[in-house]
Simulated assay, not measured.
Amino acid sequence: MAYLPSELLSHQQKVCRLYKRAARCIEDWIHKTPDRRYEAALLRERFDKNKDIKDFKYAKYLLEEGEKELFSKIHYQPISFPDSPTGVAYDRKSYVPDYVLDYWHPLEKAMYPKYFARREQMKDEYMKWYFETYPEEKKKIDDH
């Protein structure tokens, strides 16, 4: 299947994304904060130097050259955030349903008496609301 772009990016957006990727590349290579900030300032100076170019062909050429330069300097093992798709904790959040608390041991429930008392009260209120809203469900249960 062919790749269809979901959005069209303006030249300005492409330049901004290139700048961000280049700044992240600096973070991948340089770990000392003062050195990293210095390199980031030099990078920003390079981008600011060419921000007022009116010739679109030349601006596009500079963007392509910037992409090539970034590709040549990209880190072999870039830093990734833990929850990002390449991170170590990606998609590790598990959903624990509420009914699991019903299987707690009574001694465990005794450690949180107010919580479990309120929880039982809320469960009763929900059951009352449910059977008032759907009386046919109550009949089904009573028939069995």
Score class of each variant (00 low, 15 high):
33 T>I: 12
31 H>W: 07
13 Q>E: 15
117 A>Y: 12
59 A>Y: 01
130 Y>M: 05
56 F>G: 03
35 D>R: 09
95 Y>F: 15
50 N>M: 09
72 S>P: 00
47 F>G: 06
52 D>N: 14
111 M>K: 15
138 K>Y: 09
103 Y>K: 03
113 P>G: 05
134 Y>R: 02
73 K>E: 15
81 F>L: 14
110 A>R: 04
67 E>H: 04
139 K>D: 08
25 C>D: 07
91 D>L: 13
2 A>Q: 10
105 H>E: 12
64 E>Q: 10
104 W>F: 15
103 Y>T: 09
122 M>R: 10
142 D>P: 00
134 Y>Q: 03
126 Y>E: 06
108 E>M: 10
16 C>W: 12
31 H>T: 11
134 Y>D: 04
4 L>Q: 10
27 E>A: 13
125 E>V: 00
27 E>R: 06
62 L>W: 02
16 C>P: 00
109 K>S: 04
133 T>H: 08
91 D>C: 12
89 A>N: 15
129 W>V: 00
133 T>E: 09
45 E>Q: 13
14 K>P: 06
51 K>Q: 09
86 T>V: 05
6 S>H: 05
143 D>E: 13
54 K>A: 11
80 S>K: 11
124 D>A: 14
113 P>D: 02
84 S>C: 07
17 R>N: 15
116 F>M: 01
20 K>P: 00
81 F>P: 00
38 Y>R: 12
59 A>G: 11
54 K>T: 15
51 K>F: 00
47 F>I: 03
4 L>A: 03
19 Y>M: 12
127 M>E: 11
111 M>V: 07
11 H>I: 03
114 K>E: 15
104 W>M: 14
29 W>A: 04
75 H>F: 09
119 R>K: 13
77 Q>A: 06
86 T>P: 00
14 K>Y: 04
93 K>D: 15
73 K>C: 10
141 I>P: 00
